[in-house]
Measured scan of single mutants.
Amino acid sequence: MAAGGDHGSPDSYRSPLASRYASPEMCFVFSDRYKFRTWRQLWLWLAEAEQTLGLPITDEQIQEMKSNLENIDFKMAAEEEKRLRHDVMAHVHTFGHCCPKAAGIIHLGATSCYVGDNTDLIILRNALDLLLPKLARVISRLADFAKERASLPTLGFTHFQPAQLTTVGKRCCLWIQDLCMDLQNLKRVRDDLRFRGVKGTTGTQASFLQLFEGDDHKVEQLDKMVTEKAGFKRAFIITGQTYTRKVDIEVLSVLASLGASVHKICTDIRLLANLKEMEEPFEKQQIGSSAMPYKRNPMRSERCCSLARHLMTLVMDPLQTASVQWFERTLDDSANRRICLAEAFLTADTILNTLQNISEGLVVYPKVIERRIRQELPFMATENIIMAMVKAGGSRQDCHEKIRVLSQQAASVVKQEGGDNDLIERIQVDAYFSPIHSQLDHLLDPSSFTGRASQQVQRFLEEEVYPLLKPYESVMKVKAELCL
């Protein structure tokens, strides 16, 4: 049975990233139509530049190519590739079939990587351009969430054990800070992308030097003109047959890092959902379990974690691919890159769409948070109580021993009897502590235990987050809708 299948058929496997999760716009960027249309555009740009620099290419040939950029006979191309065992030459023939007058000058002087690699770089750039505003929107939604809850005390956790208090907004800023680093890295790697350009079979530009009869300047002009037509500021000066596969490492490393950030955020949300302090959106008709109707599973956060793990592992592909590119190139890269580049971007696209949807509907339960604080705060307040007693004339050592005994009794009630923490009640009825009984409410005010959390939130948002989001103001209103 021949390899390949009808990918629109229910009898043929289709990647869930495309069929179930990723956005239509990201799927289109990695589609065959987008790819092969870009090949034709690159052939047109090459012909236009070659004509401008004096090669015998007519206006009629150029116009014929322009008129057929979208006229792609995919069936013919597939048949040609089956016959020739070469995808680029299959599309040269297919393009030439609908451009008979231009057929002889299509791909003039070029090698397969002229269309293959340059198209990949265009796709990487455009895919990054799709991700950047999506990530900015996630940051914006979380920034709104953090600002609104900047002063809401909550129990902090280290080692997932109760620690000092923080605020809900401050905790959210930990998430935002990681995503801001990801946004900066995505922008950097996007701006650092260079075009492969017009380089020939081993990167020496020998074929173009021959076409222009040894004119170095025209060869350099050709490279520059096509690079500018493709919208790049610069091209690699040095290439082998391909652009260095280190570029793929750079791009997928940034995406993998984004995956790590999203995994951490969504894990926190899942843990908070278990504590009943916070939940992701839950639709009115949504079913959490087929057997347990009360369940409210954090399905979206779980999906993000599941896909983020996949995204983090994909960076190993370009690392290994770059390491086995012998001399000017081997074909070890080809099949692998067809999979890992598309999957990385479709996965990143999915987790950003999902995280935006989550961040637009996060639900906080202040009463649950308050109750958990009441359970733990008495123990945390013991040092403040000791200091207040010393100020009232008591002995630190005597007070410490009193607190120690009462704390152990209260802990026994919590752990052995399943009761509430009654340390404060014990202190309130103990005559030894009568000098500070009137101060206990103040000493137990949760806001006095959150330090500068709310001020940190305000400063972080104003100095770091809002300036970073400013270039994306025009796209901030787009909502994230999930079908599944």
Rank of each mutant, 00 (worst) to 15 (best):
185 N>H: 10
86 H>Y: 15
449 F>P: 04
447 S>A: 00
469 L>N: 12
429 V>T: 14
171 R>A: 00
7 H>W: 09
351 I>L: 11
264 K>P: 08
263 H>G: 12
149 R>Q: 01
228 E>G: 03
482 L>C: 00
469 L>W: 14
315 V>K: 09
57 I>L: 13
420 D>R: 12
182 D>V: 06
181 M>K: 13
55 L>Q: 11
421 N>F: 03
295 K>T: 00
343 E>Q: 13
249 I>F: 13
115 V>N: 09
8 G>N: 14
211 L>W: 01
11 D>W: 14
449 F>T: 06
454 S>V: 14
58 T>D: 14
287 I>D: 03
26 M>Y: 05
299 M>C: 01
36 F>I: 15
437 H>F: 05
291 A>F: 10
408 Q>G: 05
339 I>A: 09
131 L>S: 05
395 S>T: 07
348 A>C: 05
471 P>Q: 12
373 I>S: 06
326 W>L: 14
467 P>G: 07
158 T>E: 03
449 F>K: 14
249 I>Q: 12
83 R>K: 02
288 G>D: 13
337 R>I: 14
416 Q>T: 12
274 N>C: 10
446 P>E: 02
68 N>F: 01
308 A>H: 13
118 N>F: 00
290 S>F: 03
430 D>I: 13
358 I>G: 04
241 Q>R: 05
140 S>F: 14
244 T>V: 02
231 G>S: 08
472 Y>G: 02
97 H>I: 01
369 I>P: 12
410 A>E: 02
90 A>L: 01
448 S>Y: 00
450 T>A: 07
7 H>E: 10
322 A>Y: 15
217 H>V: 11
482 L>E: 03
101 K>H: 01
226 V>P: 12
314 L>I: 12
376 E>C: 11
282 F>N: 05
163 A>I: 11
219 V>D: 00
466 Y>V: 13
257 S>K: 05
465 V>Y: 15
79 E>D: 04
327 F>D: 09
138 V>C: 13
431 A>G: 15
462 E>P: 12
79 E>H: 04
22 A>P: 10
148 E>K: 04
108 L>K: 03
302 E>S: 00
450 T>L: 10
438 S>W: 06
414 V>T: 07
172 C>D: 10
471 P>A: 10
401 E>S: 15
413 V>A: 02
289 S>R: 09
237 I>R: 10
318 P>C: 11
56 P>T: 13
5 G>K: 11
285 Q>A: 14
349 D>V: 04
199 K>P: 02
204 T>G: 02
474 S>Y: 12
356 Q>C: 07
291 A>R: 02
427 I>D: 15
206 A>V: 09
78 A>D: 02
359 S>Y: 15
119 T>V: 08
102 A>C: 12
46 L>C: 07
82 K>F: 09
172 C>I: 02
418 G>V: 14
63 Q>F: 15
161 Q>P: 01
440 L>M: 10
245 R>G: 09
31 S>V: 12
72 I>S: 04
238 I>S: 00
298 P>H: 09
184 Q>A: 11
194 R>D: 08
465 V>S: 04
202 T>P: 04
158 T>N: 10
459 R>D: 08
316 M>V: 02
378 P>V: 10
475 V>D: 01
289 S>G: 03
432 Y>K: 14
343 E>P: 03
149 R>W: 08
66 K>V: 06
313 T>P: 03
166 T>I: 10
103 A>E: 06
198 V>Q: 00
102 A>V: 04
143 A>C: 09
330 T>H: 13
72 I>M: 04
252 L>Q: 07
54 G>F: 06
157 F>Y: 04
484 L>D: 06
407 S>V: 12
209 L>C: 03
447 S>P: 02
56 P>N: 01
296 R>H: 12
147 K>A: 08
466 Y>S: 11
481 E>A: 15
286 Q>K: 05
229 K>H: 05
323 S>W: 08
124 L>E: 11
463 E>W: 11
143 A>L: 11
236 F>T: 08
34 Y>A: 11
176 I>H: 02
328 E>I: 07
155 L>P: 01
156 G>D: 03
120 D>Q: 00
